[in-house]
Computed example of a mutant assay.
Amino acid sequence: MPDSDNENDPRPFRRDGTDHRIHNVDARTLRAIAHPLRLRLLNTLREFGPATASKLGDRLGESSGATSYHLRRLAESGLVEDAPELGKGRERWWRSVHDGSMFETTDFRTHADPEVRGAIDFVLHETATAHAQELNTWLGTMGDWPEEWQRSWDLSDFKLRLTPELALELSGKVQALMESYRDIIPEDTEGSATVRTHLHVFPRPSE
């Protein structure tokens, strides 16, 4: 599928310098993911790969009827699709069309449609909540991991004085560094694990 920046394309995406497809969120797809279960379904498919509505329901503690309905809504927006080669009989498998999403927050925070402004606020707060949940899960289960991993994790924060331009530059450099580590370890490498990294950059008042 060619790269596309056309707003009328139901599945616009760009490549991030690798083979990973990054979805460029527009107002239509933003509305589609501004729902707690749809956002969780999309993130789960992206992290763990294709699954049926039943498997997703079991993982997320939802009924297969609810997951089926919201998967269809995501499919209508071009965010997920059938994976027919994985199904047996009437079994229907779903996969994410993209590997991740990107958007410019200010494009939506100043949008003329209040529904869009509400949708971006919801997605941002849900994302922040998910980050906190992932970190708390690690803190609660780190004792189950080998000692090497218990010495390899990090929980740091830094206080820097920057201009908006330098803050943007910093984020770009950190993201580029993260991408330089992508796919250098084969899936079956002994002792390896998927590592989750959160990047938060935001200003705080001086007083």
Rank of each mutant, 00 (worst) to 15 (best):
98 H>G: 03
115 E>H: 11
104 E>T: 12
70 H>V: 00
18 T>V: 02
201 V>Y: 05
58 D>K: 14
75 A>V: 01
124 L>T: 06
47 E>V: 03
103 F>P: 00
107 D>I: 00
168 L>R: 14
36 P>A: 13
129 T>H: 13
30 L>F: 04
195 V>T: 12
96 S>R: 05
95 R>Q: 15
132 A>M: 09
84 P>E: 06
172 G>M: 02
23 H>W: 09
68 S>V: 01
179 E>Y: 00
147 E>V: 14
79 L>C: 06
41 L>K: 03
135 L>Y: 12
109 R>K: 12
188 D>R: 13
18 T>L: 07
86 L>N: 08
68 S>P: 04
204 R>G: 01
92 R>P: 00
96 S>Q: 06
85 E>Q: 14
111 H>P: 04
180 S>Y: 00
157 D>H: 14
111 H>S: 08
49 G>M: 05
129 T>E: 15
160 L>A: 12
22 I>K: 06
59 R>L: 11
192 S>H: 10
34 A>T: 02
50 P>S: 08
175 Q>A: 08
186 P>R: 10
46 R>M: 14
69 Y>M: 12
169 E>L: 05
74 L>A: 07
200 H>W: 08
5 D>T: 11
147 E>F: 10
61 G>D: 11
13 F>V: 01
206 S>I: 10
186 P>G: 06
65 G>C: 00
54 S>M: 08
166 L>V: 01
95 R>I: 01
132 A>D: 08
171 S>R: 15
42 L>P: 04
156 S>G: 10
146 P>R: 11
69 Y>L: 13
36 P>K: 09
106 T>M: 10
191 G>P: 09
71 L>P: 08
82 D>G: 09
